[in-house]
């Protein structure tokens, strides 16, 4: 195991103590544990996967299987602002593709990518459920509706400006 590059990761596993105490021995809690872990670390570092496996009595393969099955889980860190661009049916019909193009051009990244400065990660998602405001994106907890390519770029610019001011 020690030759494996994953072993080099050193996350602070004590952050998971509360979660483990509550769920480690409750059967069927694997997804819940991973959700909490992702909230803590921002993603699922590989050593956390091993740790969760050990504590819950699952094989690392099983935990990895669950982590890769669900779209919510990330195995890589994301930028400071996660852009979730909706590509559901209503957004598709109302031009989500042109929004994606504009964002990709503006940030010079592709779907799933993170900007060099680590500020933005773009992720397209199936449906945010705000169909009547389509096309829609969410950045963090904030939802932006009735987008146009220009409006999307403007929103990104505003966030950038705010970050620069800080």
């Amino acid at each position: 195991m020690s030759e494996c590059c994953c072993a080099n990761k050193t996350s602070d596993l004590s952050l998971l103590d509360d979660v483990m105490e509550k769920y480690a021995s409750v059967e069927g809690s694997l997804i819940t544990i991973l959700q909490h872990a992702q909230e803590i670390y921002g993603y699922l570092p590989i050593d956390v996967i091993y740790y969760v496996a050990g504590r819950t009595g699952n094989s690392p393969a099983k935990v990895m299987g669950v982590a890769t099955f669900y779209t919510q889980f990330r195995l890589q860190p994301v930028g400071k602002h996660l852009i979730m661009l909706c590509k559901g049916t209503a957004c598709h019909v109302n031009g989500a593709n042109s929004i994606e193009k504009a964002i990709c051009e503006e940030l010079k990244i592709k779907d799933g990518g993170t900007t060099e400065d680590g500020l933005f990660t773009l992720k397209t998602v199936a449906c945010l459920g705000c169909c009547s405001l389509s096309p829609v994106m969410m950045i963090g907890e904030e939802t932006y509706g009735s987008l146009t390519p220009a409006k999307a770029v403007e929103i990104l610019g505003d966030i950038r400006a705010k970050e620069a001011a800080q």
Binding site: G88, T89, A90, A126, C127, G129
Partner: peptide
């Protein structure tokens, strides 16, 4: 688990 895109 309302996953159908276009339904809310």
């Amino acid at each position: 688990d309302e996953g159908d895109p276009g339904a809310f």
